[in-house]
Design a protein around this nucleic acid. Sequence first.
DNA 1: GCGCAAATCGAAACCGTTTTGGGCAAGGCG
DNA 2: CGCCTTGCCCAAAACGGTTTCGATTTGCGC
Lengths: 340, 340
Amino acid sequence: MLGLSPTTVSRAIGGYPEVKEETRRRVREAAIAHGYRPNRRAASLATGRAMAIGHVIPTAFGHEMVNPIFADFIAGAGEVYAGAGYDMLLSVVPDGDEERAYRQMATAGNVDGLIVHGPRDGDPRIALLRGAGLPFVVHGRAPVEPTDYSFVDIDNRRAFRRATDLLLDLGHRLIALLNGIETMDFARRRRDGYLEALAARGLGARVDLTASAEMTEHAGHAAARRMLDADSPPTAFLVSSHIMALGVRRAIQDRGLTMGRDVSVVIHDDMLSYLANGAPPGAGGTEGPVFTATRSSVRAAGRRCAEILLANIGGHPPQVVQEIWECELVLGGSTGRGPP
Amino acid sequence: MLGLSPTTVSRAIGGYPEVKEETRRRVREAAIAHGYRPNRRAASLATGRAMAIGHVIPTAFGHEMVNPIFADFIAGAGEVYAGAGYDMLLSVVPDGDEERAYRQMATAGNVDGLIVHGPRDGDPRIALLRGAGLPFVVHGRAPVEPTDYSFVDIDNRRAFRRATDLLLDLGHRLIALLNGIETMDFARRRRDGYLEALAARGLGARVDLTASAEMTEHAGHAAARRMLDADSPPTAFLVSSHIMALGVRRAIQDRGLTMGRDVSVVIHDDMLSYLANGAPPGAGGTEGPVFTATRSSVRAAGRRCAEILLANIGGHPPQVVQEIWECELVLGGSTGRGPP
DNA sequence: GCGCAAATCGAAACCGTTTTGGGCAAGGCG
DNA sequence: CGCCTTGCCCAAAACGGTTTCGATTTGCGC
């Protein structure tokens, strides 16, 4: 249309210096006027870069459950991708097929890198990806101390150690732990922190005061109800997720008890956007946090993982970045002194 | 490696008939032995089909909010894509940039179709996509009666009409509506159903008993609290989302009232996997629903949208499929008789 | 006016597939 | 034996860009 070669058009749009400014302007104008945009697939083929990042999100641990933190994590990562011109490729797979999905993404060459979510015991994915030579960043980390890959994680052990210490300091002795499924690394570490705090005061954990389940409202309710109905019920709960804690609160109220007075609750808060713990930032309220919580934004983690991955893809040599974030400990209305 | 041409390899793997069975076997074995997999981008370029579906998920309505129903919707759609060999391309964009994101996906040719989420007043996206000649399916529908595009929606008006009727039948007269943001089509229709039910009994809506906000726990709490503190507070709440209702329940309990006895609540339940309303299927409990609810699985909607879209892409001629699903009305413990 | 560097552009190769249009041998039929 | 089909395979042309290499023009110093 403009009497120019594909070469020049490509260079004009790509911002290369060897085209006259006026030509570039003409090309740009014609492009927007006619809605022309370079075909991503063809460009990818030519450059060898897919300009896309893959996320594999597992669904179901037996049930049809999708972890609600993904929405926020993905939102965070997505912001970064969008800013850098990358696409996000999502693969939703049943829990067992996960490995196949990773392998497929790695070899089919339609992503330049991967984010690995929630590593588990003896997770085969990391070895697999390292073998495939594809850059990746892990959200969380594998149980054995990793040495040579990038990850972003929170200090789960320390967070739950501090939370347990807080409850102990308040005078609680019967502290229940409502954890996620303990084949997941984060749940394992939280349990360790909990046990460590108890042991430091010469206390042992009572088996009937710990539960490990999917982090749903229902599971929280069921476990809390069972414990509250037993002999010598707990006076405090340590709960691994906000959503689970909603079920705990319901169970407490079912029994005619008041949270924060009769029973204390400390949660871990991922700062999900639709589930602010108290007034969300910017709402301008004076309302404090509902739950006392260890907290760390999963959305920020998504952003950070994406940044690290993109840096690893773009800039050589690939840097190994390992970040372990400290959680904030916020005091809310859900904790009070233990029984005398 | 096998002394075969690319042609034959392509046909062997693609399952075309003009290759000897024994050759096909050799190719297959060599492929898995060496981890060969056809490059998706090159294949896409050659065939003209991207083998990917785009989803644009808006973040923030001013705040940094990502709608929690996306996780489940996407999980449903993802199942279908995976089964058909399609990828899912996600674009997370700030609310205003949505249109640009759609246009980009449409013209860059890296998707074969799109799912449009949550259409709004005078939504430009539909016209835009129709112009681009890209197949799409809308989750929800536009306010003006659509004629020629596919969508899957629930009968929001009827659901809220029935819910309101239920509360009226129970003797409630002061019924509050806690709705989503009413520029969204679904929220508009729910309001219509609510008003229609009131009008049918000669009742008008009190402005101070309706609220329209982001569907967060906090917004639900704030609105319910405000209403409960006012003169002649409502005896029942109609709440547009489960999460919002958690805030309502908290507000009710803050006031020392009991949900289901002092104040009734009816919600709309999207059946999110991590937020089962009562015992999730398969849990084997005898516990009934916590909330009385109109309900419809958003995950099923995701599956259905994906099916329709893939059918439209694969089979010609493109069929327009328009489905309006009826919600189930389930009775839970959150509703009781109104004041005498 | 000449030589040389810089600016500007184009031709052609290439990315890794799929698909079209044969080619060649074997087999069936008259 | 010649012809036609069938079975199996390959060469080459797309697909729509990017990039390398080279050509032509322009600018500048002398």
